[in-house]
Design a protein around this nucleic acid. Structure first.
Length: 586
RNA sequence: GCCCUCGUAGCUCAGGGGAUAGAGCAACUGCCUCCUAAGCAGUAGGUCGCAGGUUCGAAUCCUGCCGGGGGCACCA
């Protein structure tokens, strides 16, 4: 029931009556608001096929459509553009349907079973700014998919089964070799270590550096990894503790971002299905041996560059992340019954995903009707154009980043006179929501594939095109609705627009369905962000021009209350799709 | 060397083959006795990296070149 669909259908019928493909009737929002609210450019490409002058076809369409009373003006311009404006009556009627619809005019599409893989924290490493994008973009895509009606699962997909585990094991063994985890003959319960994630995080770079320069040490880590994967009890018990310590910290960080998952799986989840999977691939003749390792050939005739084979098992029989990734696809397709897998992962891994996806196709793990997509994103850079680092040169922890923006919001709140009488806990809650909004919107308003510059001052300014601006706009409406209720005013049917800003607000409100659908099609939350900003801006203009509570015409006032209430609902929906909450006041 | 990606206003970034390429920040000028000024209105700022091509029409699609970033099997 979207307005653009309705208009496109009307124009499509006109093209059809003129003996042309109805697809030419596609109507879009006008690029020239001075000439019309909408435009249809179909006459230009149609002219080529029909062998008639474009202006003649356009005139034909205009003549047919003009008999329809809903259009205020339909006119021909330039080489064959058709400019369209609606009557205020028609526009109000269309928007009334939206206002009466719990889904705000967004149709539920035929559901498909989707899984979004995002976040991707690792054992023994605290989440840092690099995880921010994966988490925020993935969370938004999951919300969008779910709202559109897809059966959607989010998986944090923990990095918990690779060589870093072997390294941690040998490091802990080095520090305390007497621990029973390292005694192969030990039977009984294992002690609980009092390690924190900070401890683990301090260990990792040390042992990692040693492995890099000392071949024997690297060999020990490799063997430990292998034995862990083979099921050595002491190592498994130690692994469980390292896993749980890390998981607890990650859950806390995700919670503070307001991000939730349906699945907290990881690489280790699929361990038991790796052997059978490789056997099956072997029997199918897909796996070959190469330099002692087991690989799947994935090159294709029209490859531009080299495509090395995909590694499923190391020469020592151990597994690596490519193995678990392949088994994870199998699990998601066979057990979780997913039809579309979205991997929200750094663009630097695009070659890896190209390989895994090809291997999954070649091995029959993911038939062609299963969607496999790498939703790649760029890096968050510092002022030097390189991946963001703190002044000391270290990585900025996600936790610290969140405190920084929350603190900045707290300061802004102290400056505002209006907030001085708020209770302390409410102020803290507002600061949290505002800080997170600044962070999330600042990220999501960039297209995901571009690298962008992380500027803390910009995130802390809260002015202009920011998350807090959107919250502020919504809060203004909430305030109006509260005041209206106190004054005993209520909402009424929409009446035709009488002001330019009012009409424009209605037009923006009517664009919602296409924007959400397009954002999901392109896997691009920035389309939501962009539109939410347009909507808020248009509302603020209307707010300046039209004083709702002072309006003397009761019908118009009631209509305005409906209009701003619809604006609020759309804003809250859009912000929710971005993972941003709106406080009651700020 | 090969592959991927990006190049748009002083800065940070949007932009769906369509007309006169947009926004925020920074700069300058106005607007709070009036529903929250985290706001609104205005001024100024551009050979869309360069060169070809496809097209009635290209910032957008294709090719080449230049520049930034990234990647190229037993790490993740």
């Amino acid at each position: 029931m979207s307005l653009l669909n309705d208009l496109s259908r009307i124009f499509g019928i006109a093209f059809e009556q003129a003996g042309l493909d109805p697809a030419f009737g596609a109507v879009v929002v006008s690029q020239r608001p001075d000439l019309g609210q909408f435009q249809c450019n179909g006459a230009l490409p149609a002219a080529k096929i029909a062998g008639r002058p474009p202006r003649e076809i356009a005139q034909d369409i205009v003549d047919r459509v003009q008999r329809d009373g809903r259009f205020g003006a339909v006119s021909l311009a330039g080489p064959g553009f058709i400019n369209i404006s609606l009557t205020d009556d028609f526009l109000a009627g269309e928007l009334q349907l939206v206002a009466d619809d719990p889904r705000l005019g967004v149709p539920e599409i035929p559901a498909s079973r989707v899984l979004v893989d995002y976040g991707g924290p690792n054992v023994a490493k605290e989440m840092h700014v690099g995880h921010l994008r994966a988490t925020i973009i993935g969370d938004s895509l999951k919300r969008i998919a779910r709202f559109l009606g897809h059966d959607t699962l989010g998986d944090a997909h923990f990095g918990d089964w690779g060589t870093q585990m072997g390294m941690l094991i040998i490091e802990i063994a080095r520090r305390d070799p007497e621990l029973p985890f390292f005694d192969p003959d030990y039977v009984g319960a294992y002690p609980t270590l009092s390690l924190t994630l900070d401890d683990l995080e301090a260990m990792y770079p040390l042992v990692s550096a040693r492995c890099a320069e000392d071949a024997e040490e690297a060999e020990r880590a490799r063997i430990a990894t292998f034995e862990l994967q083979q099921g050595r009890p002491g190592y498994r018990a130690l692994w469980q503790q390292l896993h749980d310590i890390s998981m607890a910290a990650h859950r806390r960080d995700f919670a503070s971002l307001g991000v939730e998952f349906d699945l907290w799986n990881g690489e280790s989840t699929v361990h038991d299905r790796i052997e059978p999977m490789i056997e099956r691939l072997d029997r199918a003749g897909v796996v070959e041996e190469s330099e002692g390792a087991r690989v799947i050939g994935i090159d294709e005739p029209d490859d531009k560059g080299d495509m090395p084979p995909f590694l499923v098992a190391k020469s020592d029989g151990g597994f690596l992340y490519s193995t678990t990734d392949l088994a994870t696809i199998e699990e998601r397709v066979d057990d979780l019954r997913r039809q579309l897998l979205l991997y929200v992962v750094d663009a630097r891994q695009s070659f890896h995903f190209e390989q895994v996806f090809r291997a999954a196709r070649r091995g029959g793990i993911a038939p062609v009707d299963i969607g496999l997509e790498h939703i790649k994103f760029g890096t968050m850079n510092g002022p030097d154009g390189k991946p963001f680092q703190t002044r000391k040169g270290g990585v900025l922890k996600l936790r610290d980043l969140i405190s920084m923006v929350t603190e900045a919001a707290q300061i802004r709140l102290s400056e505002a006179d209006i907030a001085q009488d708020y209770p302390d806990d409410e102020r803290a809650e507002i600061a949290r929501k505002v800080g997170l909004a600044a962070l999330k919107f600042g990220d999501l308003s960039n297209h995901r594939t571009s690298n962008y510059l992380f500027d803390l001052d910009r995130f802390a300014s809260f002015e202009g095109k920011t998350g807090p601006y959107l919250q502020y706009s919504a809060v203004r409406i909430k305030s109006i609705m509260r005041n209206a209720e106190e004054a005993g005013l209520s909402r009424g049917s929409l009446v035709p627009a009488g002001f330019e800003t009012e009409r424009n607000l209605m037009l923006v409100l009517a664009r919602l369905p296409e924007v959400i659908e397009r954002a999901f099609e392109l896997r691009a939350p920035n389309h939501i962000a962009e539109y939410a900003y347009d909507l808020a801006t248009q509302f603020n203009r209307f707010y300046e021009e039209c004083h709702i509570l002072r309006e003397e015409d009761p019908a118009r006032q009631a209509s305005w209350l409906t209009l701003v209430d619809l604006t609020l609902k759309e804003l809250i929906l859009l912000l929710d799709l971005l993972g941003i909450e709106v406080p009651d006041r700020m």
